[in-house]
Computed example of a mutant assay.
Amino acid sequence: MRAFVAGLCLAALAFGASAARDPLAAQRWRSRILVVSAPSAGDAGLKAQRAALGPVRDGLAERNLVVMEAVGTGPEATALRKRLRLPPEAFRAVLIGKDGGSKLVSEEPIPPQTLFATIDAMPMRKDEMRTRSSGP
């Protein structure tokens, strides 16, 4: 029993260490992620991306799309940029699938229509839409 508990503790520590190295790990297989990276809060690309996403919150939720921002030079922003190999001095928007892979990378804000079309073309999303439409 003691060995079992020790094994669980080690597994929990390993998971925690993995999540610390990969800030996207907690969302894997749960959500798609749009990572928006900007050098500062005043960045024009960041402001434009926020403005474009504001009116389409329902569409984001429907597609299990979470927005994460890497703004400035803090540890969270640095970790996200390192994970995705993004430059700290420029705007980038990256769409990450539920599998953790990059699906779309842009140096410009991504219009919601482009995000939604890209996501809706993914096999996992097609399955979600089929399941939802054939539900009770």
Rank of each mutant, 00 (worst) to 15 (best):
A14R: 09
F15V: 14
A17S: 12
S18L: 13
A19V: 15
A20H: 13
R21N: 14
R21I: 00
R21S: 15
R21W: 06
R21Y: 05
L24V: 12
L24I: 11
R28V: 15
R28M: 10
W29P: 08
W29R: 08
W29F: 15
I33N: 04
I33M: 07
V35R: 01
V35Y: 01
V35P: 02
V35H: 02
V35D: 00
V36C: 07
S37M: 09
S37V: 06
S37C: 14
A38C: 11
A38Q: 05
A41V: 06
A41S: 11
G42C: 06
D43C: 11
A44C: 01
K47E: 10
K47L: 10
A48T: 04
R50T: 11
R50E: 12
R50W: 00
A51F: 02
L53E: 01
V56H: 07
R57V: 01
G59W: 06
G59H: 06
L60R: 05
L60M: 13
A61G: 07
E62F: 06
E62W: 01
R63D: 03
R63M: 06
L65Y: 02
V67D: 04
V67E: 07
M68T: 01
V71I: 13
V71A: 08
G72N: 08
G72D: 06
G72A: 10
G74P: 04
P75Q: 13
A77R: 01
A79D: 07
A79R: 08
L80Q: 08
L80S: 10
R81S: 11
K82C: 05
L84R: 12
R85Q: 13
R85N: 14
P87R: 14
P88A: 13
P88R: 11
E89C: 00
A90I: 02
A90D: 12
R92C: 05
A93D: 08
L95Y: 04
I96P: 00
I96D: 03
I96R: 02
I96W: 06
I96Q: 03
K98Q: 12
D99Y: 07
D99G: 07
D99R: 14
G100S: 09
G100R: 05
G101N: 07
S102K: 14
S102E: 15
S102Y: 02
K103C: 04
K103N: 06
L104A: 06
L104C: 08
L104Y: 12
S106Y: 04
E107C: 00
E107Q: 10
E108P: 00
P109F: 01
P109Y: 03
I110D: 01
Q113T: 09
Q113A: 15
T114A: 12
T114S: 10
F116A: 05
A117F: 08
A117S: 15
T118K: 14
T118R: 14
T118L: 07
I119H: 00
I119V: 15
D120M: 07
D120C: 05
D120Y: 05
P123K: 14
P123S: 08
M124C: 09
M124P: 08
R125K: 11
R125T: 06
R125Q: 14
K126H: 08
K126P: 09
K126Q: 15
D127Y: 04
D127T: 13
D127W: 02
D127P: 00
D127K: 13
D127A: 14
E128K: 05
M129A: 11
M129V: 12
M129D: 10
M129H: 04
R132H: 10
R132C: 00
S133E: 13
S134A: 15
G135W: 13
G135H: 13
G135N: 13
G135T: 02
P136I: 01
